[in-house]
Design a protein around this nucleic acid. Sequence first.
DNA 1: CCCAGTCTTGACCGGCGGGTCAAGACGTGG
DNA 2: CCACGTCTTGACCCGCCGGTCAAGACTGGG
Lengths: 240, 240
Amino acid sequence: MAAPNGAKDVANGAGPAPRELTRQGQERKQAILDAAGALFAERGYAETRVIDIVRAAGVAKGLFYWYFENKEAVFAELVGAVRHQLRLEQGRAIDPGATALSRVRQGVEASVRFMGEHRRLYSFFDMESLDPRLMNLLRPGAEVHLTDTAAHVRAGIEAGQIQDEDPLLLAHGVVGAVAWFSHLHRTGRIDLPVGELADFTGRFVVRALAADDEAAAQAQACGGDRGVARVQGRSAARVG
Amino acid sequence: MAAPNGAKDVANGAGPAPRELTRQGQERKQAILDAAGALFAERGYAETRVIDIVRAAGVAKGLFYWYFENKEAVFAELVGAVRHQLRLEQGRAIDPGATALSRVRQGVEASVRFMGEHRRLYSFFDMESLDPRLMNLLRPGAEVHLTDTAAHVRAGIEAGQIQDEDPLLLAHGVVGAVAWFSHLHRTGRIDLPVGELADFTGRFVVRALAADDEAAAQAQACGGDRGVARVQGRSAARVG
DNA sequence: CCCAGTCTTGACCGGCGGGTCAAGACGTGG
DNA sequence: CCACGTCTTGACCCGCCGGTCAAGACTGGG
């Protein structure tokens, strides 16, 4: 996951962080980060004790506070790294030449797939967490996805492919669908291969947005992310 | 809210509950319930201390445990009551004579409206809460809504009004949309009169489900809940 | 008036868990 | 070998908060 650089971007402020780390130091820090990620994913932030993290990482409790300001800081760093990865993935999946509605679909499919494949890493900011204390940490990142989506939606409306509704509302619907279905998948309430769920979510969103049957059909038909040909029927889509 | 009966239904088990309550007793209990509801709504379950609840109700801490097993029990009782009300509202809103797709729309609109109007009461099982401890309490209730919806969807598929996809997945999409938009509204990210949000959500869901433009148009056109004439055009919507 | 059951109080308990700290170990350069 | 910065340890501290309890107050029936 996060390269040391990526980590440094996130973990600034008035913490013990600005220190220079030796090779060993970086490894230790990463071990703690990994352990925290696994535990947060498994039982959630509130249910994870610092003592659990350090035990899992095989170090003493004090060391945790050598590398991190506090529990929240680890969470923030983890979130930053994962969010960054997700955006990369989306960027890779979206074909700038495609129509707006198709671009939305590509982004949606990539997101669902990403979340499904990295469920452990992703789950701790599930549904942008309802914990009041964490919401503030998550909010800005979520905002970015929203405005990205809204931009595509706006373009789609101008092109007549998308319903003439408030673009922000529609964008909310899109990111909501992604979050919701991913959540259900992660919590085992939907038992489907990621690929199929991603495809379904793509179709769902396209229909919700499309100005009419034709626009929908057109967006469904043209290729999914990374140019993999995907037939409009359900089924048989497998990707990595 | 909850009639004493409704309350009794929920609060059984091996608690201090089976006791017979005097008139005064019922009032006290209700006061605690009200205070708890307000506080849960305002800051969430985890952030609400028992001490805060009793202070708000103007009673001593011990009294809380005279009427309730523990903190969770209050939550459960509150949730049961609200959920019950929501179902009543849905039942009132849905016209059994309407087409399946219209019925879904009516249910969706009624739900969004209900949640918007009772935001305080409702918010504490926001997004069916991600807190692992509470999920188990919420799960069964949520399941009911899901299967209700799925039944309508199934009917709609058979009637050719709804896409031939997995009914359960579609139902998930429907309740997800309701939960998501309500959540955004409640947390102030969508600043719209409830009625407009309800209408929007209805349109969104109908489009996502509809088999084709015609089915969608037909479901959008026919009256909303309680026969209130509602024009299909959208009104000036702005989002916070 | 007394008794018994209902109700009410607030001091107290216990443990949990985030965060601190003084004491080193280790490694590197002088 | 020393000095110094980095790293590591685990015992300890302390506030918080859910839950308990012994001691009453209030009320209605006999």
